[in-house]
Design a protein around this nucleic acid. Structure first.
Lengths: 206, 206
DNA sequence: GTTGCGTTATATCAGGGCGATATAGTCATA
DNA sequence: TATGACTATATCGCCCTGATATAACGCAAC
């Protein structure tokens, strides 16, 4: 449980349970749906993680004998301590949020964070990608590589550039929102740069 | 060693040693440089893999006492059996080549394959991505998701579309090359759709 | 009505990869 | 001659994945 990855799973679980109590199977489904595409957390890590979290007092479990014919489940609910931990993890969250998976988890929880935290994570991710990009470009410059490898790197560079651009847009929006909130009184809906329900703003890339 | 991932590492090692004999450290550097960006095979899997391959008779090791001041290394060289195995792995290579990592390894070895094999792998990869894309779009259509999650999926969809486009270009080139080779006598440089040294063709995406 | 199958739901385990660490020789530089 | 940086091999613990077991339920077929 002490691993780096486990922390991310813990964060994801806390984040989901903050919305509503849930049982393991449901939790896993949502996790897959949000993050996974192809590659999500497996039961082999989820169930042990939940048990550990019970042991730590972050969540409490309740056997829920199946009302209405369903089989019995174990429903997990966040404790006060768990809610505190979630707050802490969301507030720190600098060094962890660099790699793909961690970033994804943090990003899906942006709705629960403040602008300052979001900007920190977005900046960190951007720096990381730029680092990757520098490496790829360096390799592209190397003349003695076979053409397929070069083509692979060329495409990777494009993908990285595209994601950097995406991050730039997001960062710009977050900053604009931050300024807005500090200079003038925040309007009712003026606090979140991304709003519920509506289509993505037209200014976004492509 | 029997795992799926190990097979990929084996393939990568075979592919590199087919070019020239090498020691573990150098092998790892090249592996990182070609695939990794951030996230390559670790020594913890490479060295055991090499030992296993010696046991299987795919490679032979030779202690190379450091001439010219360098410390002694263990240089690995491909055997006939190893070369056969490489040929087999390159020829099969349908179901393995779908996920990111496997695809990367196979792609960097395209220079050693025939057009038919390349097309099979590219098509497989494309199908896989399209499957992902369908899932992402399905989730995008779901109205009760928070805006940040939607934004994440939107970007993922873009990235997937972009990669599909890239694959389409590659597939088109490979097909053109295949037709060319079958209808007319292949010219000296007409056999490979991607040529040594030159800049990427202008028609490529973006 | 019972057979079989797909889904929901929890649990566990073997196998293996990753990151860390140990060891040690070489080289620069200060 | 110490210090750090790089080359080079090796091993180990942690934990994650994928597979499998178990079981209860719904539903369709026949």
């Amino acid at each position: 449980m002490g691993g780096r990855r486990a922390r991310v799973l813990e964060l994801a679980v806390l984040g989901h349970l903050a919305g509503a109590p849930m049982h393991g199977y449901e939790l896993r489904k949502r996790l897959n749906s949000e993050l996974g595409i192809f590659h999500a957390f497996s039961y082999g890590s989820l169930y042990p993680c939940l048990k550990e979290m019970v042991r730590e007092g972050l969540v409490v479990s309740a056997h829920c004998g199946g009302a209405g014919g369903r089989r019995s489940r174990i429903v997990y609910r966040l404790t006060e301590r768990g809610r505190d931990r979630l707050g802490d993890l969301l507030a720190e969250s600098t060094p962890a949020a660099t790699d793909d998976e961690c970033f994804g988890v943090h990003f899906t929880l942006f709705g629960r964070t403040r602008t300052e935290v979001r900007l920190r994570i977005l900046d960190g991710r951007r720096a990381r990608l730029q680092e990757c990009l520098a490496q790829v470009r360096e390799r592209l410059a190397d003349p003695r590589q076979d053409p397929y490898t070069v083509e692979l790197h060329r495409h990777r560079a494009e993908a990285l550039e595209s994601e950097v651009g995406w991050l730039d847009d997001l960062i710009r929006r977050e900053r604009r929102c931050a300024e807005h909130a500090s200079t003038a009184d925040a309007t009712i809906s003026g606090n979140a740069p991304l709003r519920e329900g509506g289509p993505p703003p037209p200014g976004s890339r492509r």
